[in-house]
Every structure is written in C-alpha cells, then in structure tokens.
Design a protein around this nucleic acid. Structure first.
Lengths: 162, 162
DNA sequence: TTAGGTGCAAATTCTTTGCACCCTG
DNA sequence: CAGGGTGCAAAGAATTTGCACCTAA
C-alpha cells in the first residue's frame, strides 16, 4: 500500500525539523531515502530502498542507504523491524510470554501477563493467514542505554548486545 | 534465568516425539542443541548455543547448530526472534499498527485495531526500561505458505520474502 | 543396510569501514 | 569556509552449501 502524498509531505517536513534539531544535515540523498521509506508500508529492506531511491538519484551508493536508515532509526523517525538489530536469536520458551526490546542495544527481556496472554485479535487478520501465536512487543530503551544516553549519531550500527 | 531441570526433561521428551513423528532422526547433536535452547530464556543467538553445546560435544560444528536450530524452528519447537528471519527491514509507519508475521516466509503485514492500540502494560516492565511503544505481533502462516504446505525439512533457510 | 546427518572448508550474502572528495549550513 | 556527508572499493561478519564420511533406525 502506498501512503497518500499529503501525509508523506507532512512527514518530510517533520523529517527536516528533526534533523535540524539534532544538528544533522539535510542532504538530497537523505531526503529521498526518507521519502521512499515514508511512502510505503511494506517494511522494505535496505536493498529495496536502495533500488527505489536509485531511480531519482542514480549515483547513490548502497552504504549511504545503510548509514541513512540507521541514522533515521537513531533519530526515531523509522523503526527497525526484527526484535534485535543483530543476528537471529532463538526462543524455546513455550510458556506464554511477551517481550521488552531495547531499540538501542537490542537487549530482549521476557515478561509475563495473564491479561496480555488473551488478546482478542480482529477478525480481519484471519484473512492474512492462520494465527498460531500472539505476543506483545514493547519497544523502549533499557536502563543501561538510558544511562549511556548515546548522543544521536549518523553512524551505522555498533556491536553490542544482551 | 535457567529453566528448571524437570521442565527441561519434559521438553526433551516432547522434542523426541516431535522428531519421530516428523521422521527426523534424533541424534546426539540435536538432543544437546535442543537441551541448551530449552534450558534458557535468554534468547541465545547461534554462536551462544554453539559455545554451550561445545562443552559437551567438542567436535560439533557451527553449521550443524545452524541447521539444527532451523530444523527445530520448522518443527515448531523453537521460535526465531525477529520479525523476519531475513535482513533488517525498516518501518516508517508512525500511525499505531500491529504486525502479522508469517513464520515460514517472513512476510509481514500491518493491521489496525483501536483496542490493541491501548494495552495496559504491567508495571513490572518499567523496571526493565523506558517504554516508547507497544505493539502486538501475531505469528502464523500466510495463505501462500499454507498452500505450499512445505513439508518439514532439516535444511537451513531458503530465500524468499514479501 | 541406507538415507539422512555431520564436520570441514569454501562460498555467499549482508553490512560496515577507510579514505578522498563534495556540499550543506 | 568547515565539518559533516557521500561514493567507492575493500574488509568483515554472519550464514549457507558441497561433499565425503558417519550413524540412527
């Protein structure tokens, strides 16, 4: 689904404000990259964004897309999907549980709640596929990362986890 | 947190049953790999599982751990964390929304629900960190994958997405 | 016995980095 | 004009694969 143009325009303004407030330069590349991500709800991967932006900016390089997306992530303008921004992790905890995920370091902690175990999922969802499990994912920043108070960088991902 | 031994033992029996039913051999390596994943709730990555299993089976190879974990995943004995089992994806949809994720192909679709937008998160969670957002993640199998009815393989991940 | 499983090493794929030049503020 | 941003090419990681030998059923 394409997001309507008005909304995309609004989000572009927001993007520029956030950048300026953060002391980050608003470049042609960054604007176009943000525009592409904001214009779709398909959760594109880096390669897809790269291809789409390339239509408007043929000289753009893949690593600029990586750097920019992580920068947008640090500024809170986009969310990185996947519990951790790191390697695949496996969970054999079969008892019902939910996740708290730190958006900074990827740390994931289980928590429990009877209420959240029994959520009503809207019927429309069944038209997407068969539902096997339902889980609440809370995104935020863990105490450790709050302390570090990492200043927003334009860099790419650092390595660290828990 | 370590999971208590009784429960782990029970899960090992379950593991053996599921394997036999699926016509998959129960090998020493597989048993030890499953034991390690079932014994913790730390959502270990492949490397961690590898290191732990290596204590009991020094000759084990990393790729066996990869293959086995994905096989356990195909059998439904463990869950792969991260919305997609693939590359990082980005989401700039700032309106409240929730995700349906196909555990087979990684396809992720947004859905909306006012009820789910306003969940009460237990207080205990605030002791983990600051909560920025809350989202429901529904795991299941998309219509396309149900049709394909992929027979359980012991192979690793194939490439496909949406 | 025998098909499926394993270890090894090599190949892929995805992502990040170093550096010289460029452009926004 | 200055310092951050970009493109390029090369490095690094994470994950997968081909193959010959091994082992659970």
């Amino acid at each position: 689904m394409r997001i309507n143009k008005d909304n995309t325009a609004k989000r572009l303004l927001e993007f520029e404000n956030v950048c300026r407030n953060a002391g980050v330069k608003v470049t042609h590349q960054r604007r176009e990259i943000f525009r592409e991500v904001a214009a779709t709800d398909e959760h594109p991967d880096v390669e897809s964004v790269y291809k789409r932006v390339k239509v408007r900016i043929p000289e753009i390089s893949l690593d600029t897309v990586y750097r920019t997306l992580w920068m947008l992530h640090d500024l809170g303008l986009v969310v990185a999907l996947g519990v951790s921004q790191e390697r695949v992790r496996f969970d054999a905890n079969t008892s019902k549980h939910h996740h708290f995920v730190c958006t900074q370091c990827g740390m994931t902690r289980d928590f429990y709640s009877d209420d959240l175990d029994n959520l009503k999922i809207p019927d429309q969802v069944r038209s997407i596929g068969r539902i096997d499990a339902t889980q609440v994912e809370v995104r935020g920043m863990c105490l450790k990362c709050i302390q570090k108070k990492q200043p927003p960088t334009c860099a790419s991902r650092k390595k660290e986890s828990t």
